[in-house]
Design a protein around this nucleic acid. Structure first.
Lengths: 188, 188
DNA sequence: GTCTATACACCGATAGAC
DNA sequence: GTCTATCGGTGTATAGAC
C-alpha cells in the first residue's frame, strides 16, 4: 500500500476510536496531514471507500494481533491477559475506545457494506476468544458455565461496553471491570 | 412540561437510540413532527439545550423504571429479569440500543454538560443493580465473586455492549448473552 | 407557538491546472 | 499526487411577521 494511503487510513482509525466515523471529515484529515481535501479524495474518492478500507485494515491488524497472542508459548490465562491489554492500551493513549464498538454504535448511519465488514471483524474476535477459552479448559485453568461460544460473545461485548463506560467515567475502571469479568473463568 | 416539548424530547430519545445524538437534526425532528425547524428552536434554542433536557428526561424515566422494579413484591432473580427485559424491548422495537450507550460512544463529541448528565444516569443504574445484587445475596439466590460494586459495573456495561453487538448481528443474541452473564450469579 | 426567510459554516464531492 | 476553485446539500441558528 502506498505510504500516503496508509497514513490516511491509520489517522482515520484513530479518529474513529476517539470521535466515531461520522464525526470526522476530509477537512479534519487534511488539516492534520497538511494536504488538501481534494488530495484525500484522490486516494479515497468517496468517504465510504475510506470507510471500507479502514475496516479491512482494522480486520487485518486485529487478526495479526490475535495470531501473535496465539503463537506465544504461554498459557491461556496469560493469553487472555494479553488480549485485555490490547484494549487497555487504547483507553490509556487518549480517550479511545474499540473502533469496532464505535462503528457498532453508528450501525444505522454507516453503509450496509461497512456494517458487513464490522460483523466479520467481530466474528474473527469471537473465534479468537473461543480458541483461548478452549485452551484454558484443556489446561484446567478455565471453568466455563454454559455455552462456550456464548461466553466468548459475552467477553468481547462486555469489554467493549466496559471501555465505553470507563472512557466517560474513569479510565482506571476498565481493567477492574475486565478482571471482574474474568473472575468467572476461574474454577477455584 | 408542555405537550410539544415532551413530544420533541421523546422523539429525540428514540432518534438517539437508533442513530445517535449527532446524527439527527432539527430538520429530522421537524419533518417527523410536521412543524418547522424554527418552531423547534422556539422550544430548545440550541441543540445542546435539547440534549441536556433529553438527558434529564432519560434520567427521570429510568429512575422511575428502577423504582417500579424495586417496589414489586418479587425476588431479586425476577427483578434482574425485569431489568434485562427493559433493554430487550429497545432492540425488539426497531434497531435501538441503550440511549446512554449511544451517548457514551459520542463522549468526545457531546458537550461537557451532557457528558456529566450521562455519568449521573450511569451512577443511578449502577446503584440500582447493586441493590438488586445485595437483595439476591440475602435471599441466597445470588453468589458473587469479588467486589459487588464492580460486579454491578460489569453487568450494566456488559449489557450495553451486548445490545450494540446484537443490533448489528442478530437481535436474538441479546437475551442469550444476558442470560450467559447472569449465569455467574447462580450459586448452584 | 408557529411560520417564512435567511445567514453562515461545514459536509462530501468534482473539474481542471500543475 | 497535489493544488485551487467551486458546487449542491445540510447543519445550527436567528430575525421578524402572524
Amino acid at each position: 500500500m502506498e505510504n500516503r494511503k496508509k497514513q490516511i487510513i491509520e489517522l482515520s482509525i484513530e479518529l474513529v476510536k476517539k470521535y466515531g466515523y461520522d464525526s470526522f471529515s476530509y477537512a479534519t484529515l487534511s488539516k492534520e496531514l497538511g494536504i488538501t481535501k481534494a488530495s484525500i479524495h484522490h486516494h479515497f474518492q468517496r468517504k465510504d471507500d475510506l470507510g471500507l478500507e479502514l475496516c479491512s485494515y482494522i480486520h487485518a491488524h486485529m487478526v495479526k494481533e490475535f495470531n501473535s497472542i496465539l503463537s506465544k508459548k504461554n498459557c491461556a490465562k496469560e493469553k487472555m491477559k494479553d488480549y485485555l491489554n490490547l484494549y487497555a492500551k487504547m483507553i490509556e493513549t487518549g480517550d479511545k475506545i474499540c473502533p469496532i464498538a464505535s462503528l457498532q454504535a453508528e450501525a444505522n448511519v454507516i453503509s450496509k457494506e461497512m456494517r458487513e465488514e464490522v460483523c466479520l471483524i467481530d466474528d474473527a474476535e469471537n473465534d479468537f476468544i473461543e480458541t483461548v477459552l478452549n485452551l484454558g479448559i484443556k489446561e484446567n485453568d478455565f471453568y466455563i458455565k454454559g455455552d462456550i461460544k456464548l461466553e466468548a460473545l459475552l467477553i468481547t461485548s462486555a469489554l467493549k461496553g466496559a471501555l465505553q463506560y470507563s472512557r466517560i467515567h474513569d479510565k482506571n475502571k476498565y481493567m477492574l471491570i475486565a478482571e471482574q469479568l474474568t473472575l468467572r473463568l476461574q474454577s477455584f
